[in-house]
């Protein structure tokens, strides 16, 4: 394969033909924010956070799906890009019900991390407070649509990695919703293998392991009782 030479933020880099701008930038330790991208899955160019400026192209291009070309001059940072990225994140926060303090992903959330990184200190748009439900019908996992940003990573993980194609998108626009099989409760979706890849791919707290969310902890007091009784009866004395 032929090598291509290009510049990113003035830095000259060389990469293999067919590589994307995102791959080349990350190899060169240049950070480009992403949300819908996840290594190992097909890129869809949906979140628009990785948009970059390419000299000679009037349009902004997503780094994740733009293939490099010889002599390309790419800018990953500019006032305009920073402004657009910040607005994109603000739009997401206003769109559904993202409340970090009570979220299972608090501190481990890509949306939250990006917001810190991009300097989102407040949201200027009206919060829409839509009424979305939570699907807890699966025995091991749950889906909170209030926290979904529709990045489609779970859909791609399910079809591309697990090969089950349980997850897909129904509806359109702001009413789009991640569904299981033919819009059934997740627990009744026959095609689900319960592999949990969707949960691992989710950037926010929309998909989670049951038992780990806020207010879900149940105390098992009988366990204490067992320990005390066992100690009194010396049940764990090892026999020589």
């Amino acid at each position: 394969m032929a090598a291509k030479t290009l510049t990113i933020n003035g830095q000259q880099v060389t990469a293999e033909e067919g590589a994307t701008v995102l791959q080349v930038a990350r190899d060169a330790k240049i950070n480009i924010p992403t949300l819908c991208h996840l290594d190992g899955m097909k890129d869809v160019g949906a979140c628009r956070l990785c948009i970059v400026e390419v000299v000679g192209t009037p349009k902004l291009l997503p780094a994740c799906t733009t293939v490099i070309a010889e002599g390309m001059e790419i800018k990953t940072e500019s006032d305009r890009l920073r402004k657009y990225r910040k607005m994109t994140l603000e739009l997401l926060f206003a769109e559904r019900n993202h409340v970090c303090a009570v979220c299972v992903a608090n501190g481990h959330c890509e949306l939250q991390t990006l917001a810190y990184e991009q300097g989102v200190d407040h949201v200027r748009y009206d919060y829409l407070f839509p009424k979305w439900g939570v699907d807890t019908t699966h025995e091991r996992f749950g889906m909170d649509h209030n926290r979904c940003i529709l990045c489609s990573r779970c859909v791609r993980a399910c079809v591309e990695i697990e090969g089950a194609a349980t997850k897909s998108i129904a509806g359109r626009g702001a009413k789009s919703k991640i569904i299981s099989d033919l819009n059934e409760p997740w627990g009744e979706a026959d095609s689900c293998t319960s592999c949990g890849k969707c949960v691992q791919s989710c950037p926010t707290g929309a998909l989670f392991n049951k038992g780990s969310t806020v207010a879900e902890m149940e105390h098992d007091r009988s366990h204490l009782d067992y320990v005390v009784t066992a100690r009194e009866k010396k049940l764990w004395v090892t026999h020589a």
Partner: peptide, 20 residues
């Protein structure tokens, strides 16, 4: 807003805010 497919954020969420 009604016809946005919902794939990209600016169109999906931006049209809603513009309409509001």
């Amino acid at each position: 807003m009604d016809e946005s497919c919902g794939k990209c954020i600016p169109c999906r969420a931006g049209t809603v805010q513009m309409f509001h």
